[in-house]
Write a protein that binds this DNA or RNA. Sequence first.
RNA 1: GGUCCGUUCAUCUAAGGGUUAGGAUUCAAGAUUUUCAUUCUUGCCAUAGGGGUUCGAAUCCCCUACGGACUGCCA
Length: 508
Amino acid sequence: MSEKKIRVRFAPSPTGPLHMGGVRTALFNYLFAKQHGGDFLLRIEDTDQTRYVPGAEEYIIESLKWCGLIPDEGPGFGGQYGPYRQSERKEIYARYAQQLVDSGWAYYSFDSPEDLDRLRSEAEAAGQVFSYSQHTRMNLCNSLALNETDVKNRLESGEPFAIRFKMPEQLDVTEEDLIRGSVTFNTRELDDKVLFKSDGMPTYHLANVVDDHLMEITHVIRGEEWLPSMPLHILLYRALGWEESRPRFSHLPLILKPQGKGKLSKRDGDKLGFPVFPLQWQDPETAEISKGYREEGYFPEAFINLLALLGWNSGTEQEIFSLEELVRLFSLDRVVKSGSRFDPEKARWFNRTYLQEKSPEVLARQFEPILKEKNIVTSSLKVTPIIEEIKDRCDFVKDIWDHGYYFFEAPKSYDEKTVSKRWKTETAGEMEAIAHLFESVDKWEASSIKDSFSAFMNEKGWNFGGVMNPLRLCLVGGNMGPDLFRICELLGQSETVDRIRKAVKVLG
RNA sequence: GGUCCGUUCAUCUAAGGGUUAGGAUUCAAGAUUUUCAUUCUUGCCAUAGGGGUUCGAAUCCCCUACGGACUGCCA
């Protein structure tokens, strides 16, 4: 086993946008594969035709690409083990389902979905739970309970059937989960799962075992929600005679909602205002739009980093990791067992940390689309020093606008609270005097503006705070912003003077 | 209901029998910034409860409580 090439797969179902928990599963698979010099495959699990959602597969692939998790094999990525869409592997599964029936590990079930629904609701009404299992199978309509000729007739007459796994009685199934350690189930408590549906498609259970075997998957790394079906999968490998080469299992903890109970869902994002999906998604039926990390302005590196730390840590105090570092340091036995509550605040902090590490030039380039959207024409030469001045107050590229819009357009209004606090009766006259002073400044740089200003203030004997605060109000429309003289410099001499005069006119 | 998994500050987590239980986020206070934000410093805050085992338990065992997943011809 040690000489076998490591191969893992990410196997989402194209039923909608990829949840961030799904992205984390993909990430952990990717990290594990790359660390061992192995392969990371993408397999589309589209065995449920009724849940097909147009665009979902494209969405999944685009998401992985945005995150930098490029599959070695998969639909559109090539590979020697294809096809990588289960709907295109249909014939393969029927053969193995038949093999299981022939060898006595599975049986035909003729019970209609309606019959089973009825049994379930009857049981529920009686305060019980119906389960198709070793305890009930002999009372139901299947090839175990019916006599041979009856079964033969039904089959020959084309009556629809499903194939169910014949769960052994009283058998302990123990597996060493790479994250959780030893986990034991007794088959007595397990039901007879459908392996092959009456529509000719396999269920997840059969398809994933067959494909993982055929694709030579060595490690199955998936969400905790699959833990209860692990014994079934193990028994399927046994039943198909593949036990020797079967993959090892690891079950990742869930990502829980920020507050309240349960796992993170789409609704939490809507309610608390953060994305749950990597990319924006528009539901093709309802046209409803769900936010994406990309569109919200997260850097893919930051998104990956925060996902990696949700359930894994390096054992050191380091929190910022590049994908390359994660590949090097990742290890399944440092994955925590308990579910992690998602913290949108910390997610924002991760993005902030990445933003602060970027140069003003790079940020200026990323800021361009926002300026364009606002119909502002300027040059990167002007934008770069502005960003330098305000980047440390930003978490996202779009914050550059929120914290620095006044560099690009004159204030349209003046913050009321600041006006009432700072704008006195004598202010208009003082502002006019400053405007006049500024017109005469020779070298329009922060330091010389400051010198002229200070000299003038001392000469007049005016109070600095009493003048600087309203001056700031004239230039930016409020009481925020970086050093006032830097603002003057970046605004330019004539714009600065114009803004002061305009404010005097408006505020009197 | 049943099966399985889990439980360290509000949140993410470290400590794999011996530490004043560490870090990060959030929050609060102070400093700096003649503004705002940043930054810096400081502070608050945790081993779910009960029994064992042991010289010694967050760590090992048992019970209880709580939380979660699963229990579909969905994945």
